[in-house]
Design a protein around this nucleic acid. Structure first.
Lengths: 155, 155
DNA sequence: TCCTTCATGTAATAGGTTACATGATTTC
DNA sequence: GAAATCATGTAACCTATTACATGAAGGA
């Protein structure tokens, strides 16, 4: 603790303090493709949402602006068709470094689960058993659908 | 759809539009005990947090005020010791009805998981394998601790 | 012709955290 | 004598959602 003068082993100093959502968006960019905000929303819905929820579209644009301001991402405007344009974002070198440092940080926030169905099950003492069973089956059915959709999208 | 004039089968009309957190707090109250805001925070940390995250203390007091304003909960002041007082909350009949209606509602919000560790694993291409393994073991260790604590509290 | 996809954002509002403040009592 | 527990909130701030707005292209 009271060692030398360059005791800066800890990476905290080069990890900008931005919300986890920003890291998630930067993470999507870290796979190397140039993407529009719209693309990122679709990736979030399809993938991220399984382990880290999908932010609203407007939130994604907000995070992209933030990342660009911090120099963690860059944008450029390219043609969409003869008439219109679109803005694609890419991760920068600084972005990769920052993301790596964040990735390596042990102090990961405690996982948070917000499960409306489980919450309802926990309140099962207020429900008729048949109704509760129905709710769970309903949930199961929706999960299966989601699973199929996920399988399709990775095929 | 174009049936009779009292076509109010749907329970939506008697389910006040309050955030899920409010339902969770009311849910804790639905187990029948009179509790202080402080008590509820402890219950949240110990139980709720496994399937529905634990709100900040100040948030819990906010929700209690909201519930009382809507008549879903009542409060009364009782003695804490010779000098001080405390406010305990209880669910009302209206509260039970509302909670039952909410419980029975099929349109449960999609479950949301915010898992910082999984997010980091997903970004594994940025990490050294050993480091990543270490992170997962670390997470596992913390989970075990939590499990033990949970076992103790239910013993 | 109408709906869906692609694409980007603003404005209003709600939901939620952090920091701060206070203070008696009980336990170590 | 110090630290943890019990107990309740306010104020400042940030995070995030919803509603709204716009508009071309392409498929049904």
């Amino acid at each position: 603790m009271s060692g030398g003068n360059t005791d800066l082993k800890n990476a905290d100093l080069v990890i900008p303090k931005i919300p986890a959502t920003a890291w998630a968006v930067l993470g999507i960019l870290s796979f190397g493709r140039e993407l529009t905000g719209y693309d990122i929303k679709n990736w979030s819905d399809a993938i991220l949402h399984f382990f880290y929820w999908s932010p609203a579209t407007s939130q994604i644009y907000t995070e992209l602006h933030r990342l660009e301001e911090l120099g963690l991402a860059t944008s450029r405007t390219i043609a969409r068709d003869d008439v219109r344009e679109k803005t694609v974002y890419a991760i920068t070198e600084n972005g990769v470094t920052a993301l790596q440092n964040w990735q390596a940080d042990v102090n990961a926030e405690a996982p948070v689960l917000k499960h409306g169905v489980l919450l309802r099950v926990w309140l099962g003492h207020l429900a008729e058993p048949d109704r509760l069973r129905e709710q769970i089956l309903d949930h199961r059915f929706r999960l299966m659908e989601e699973l199929d959709a996920a399988k399709d999208s990775s095929a």
